[in-house]
Design a protein around this nucleic acid. Sequence first.
RNA 1: GUGGUUUUAGCUCAGUUGGUUAGAGCGCCUGAUUGUGGUUCAGGAGGUCGUGGGUUCGAGCCCCAUAUUCCACCCCA
Length: 460
Amino acid sequence: MANIRPSVPKGTRDFSPVEMVKRNYIFDTIKAVFRKYGYQEIQTPSMENLETLMGKYGDEGDKLIFKILNSGDFLKDVNLGATGLDAKSVTPKISEKALRYDLTVPFARYVVMHHNEISFPFKRFQVQPVWRADRPQKGRYREFYQCDADVVGSESLLNEAEFILIYNEALTKLGLKDFTIKINNRKILSGIAEIIGKPELIVEMTVAIDKLDKIGLEGVTKELLERGFTPADIDKLKPVILLQGSNEEKLESLKEVLSSSATGLKGIEEIESIFYYLKKLVSADQLLTAVELDITLARGLNYYTGAIFEVKTNEVAMGSIGGGGRYDDLTGVFGSREKLTGVGISFGADRIYDVLEELQLFPENTAETTKVLITNFDPEAEVYALPLLQQLRTKGIAAELYPTAAKIKKQMSYADNKQIPFVILIGSDEMQSGQLTLKNMRSGEQEKLPIDQIIRKLVD
RNA sequence: GUGGUUUUAGCUCAGUUGGUUAGAGCGCCUGAUUGUGGUUCAGGAGGUCGUGGGUUCGAGCCCCAUAUUCCACCCCA
């Protein structure tokens, strides 16, 4: 076989030991917060049946799903002589499985499948990789981890309020200082479309106004005209999307604008309830300043029906680091008899990693793994060291014995590179006296101590 | 999917209008130091110049294709 150049697929990465320590720090921090709010962990397979995923993310999303070629003769169901073969009709014949695209749809599938074992409301969290056949760029990978928390089977807006607390708590614990938790409600967007008299164009409308901060009012106007709105419609829309002021002020203005839309008013009421809960839950207004009602926020319209969340950091230029929302009847497409409402959030762990790296917010001690290395002088010393090695480990001290009698210089360098803080040297003197040489690699000091004293010193 | 960009030693990068043997810093190895890392000094190894074609007497440099990196658009964590 010819030599192939080692590489990983586009948009995927290896993670070194140092990177894994940092990644686990992020995962552990987020998971701890999820648990604290009563969420339980599940996992689902990396691959789902293709039909489970297709059609859930819109046409764009379908294209971004990684399909898995069937095993064996994957062409056996394809009539290669037929005319008019195209990707769309052939795909289901050659592929019946696909890599998961997000954690929400697999969760919905899980809830329907395990309906009888679950007691509702069901609060679950899930931290696993997802795959998207996107073009990679800054903060965008083809394989990345999402950290999701969802509750299914509870209409209470307390859940929404708690998700805001979870975002705030997890990101604060990770060291982020300045971030914005944007909130909107699909019903408000519906109401606005109703007022204009174009409820059927809600998706077109929201896709356009979502870009306000990126392309400005002029750009949005242009897009709206292209998407079937008249200048008169835009005149009605303009004051709404340009709403300024505090969350309360925005809500008051919206109430007037949407006074003739029952749906719109329901959306406002929901937002108000969430703020009501928040104010009862936390006294400090520090959190409330991080929460911003933004009616141009329009994410995941394919299934969100109520609240919509998005989290952005203001310290680094980066796309959103989290998002979520409420979806009524997500399980319906899987044939669930009863309508189950769900609401959830997601953290983009890989983007958070990039942000923490750029802001140098990772804790210092992340490189330290092994606490003590025992040097290996010769076979005799090796045998002498073996029981000591296990003694250290029994006491919970991460210890390793250098596996060959290499030059001491080499062994010391190994400890140094691995940032092992202590080294135990055992030569003939030490074996005779039982007084082992313990070297502190940071200070360079060394002292002679029996093993039990060394253990006492290292155990804290 | 559209447009642009990147790729040279393990890593970060120089490399002139196309011209002899492709360089530096860091890292690695050896020694100064046969029981001591991190500092210092001396020496050494390491390169299909992303890959495949082409132009040329001659290509790291020019042309074409392709992969990859990063960026913008679409969309999204």
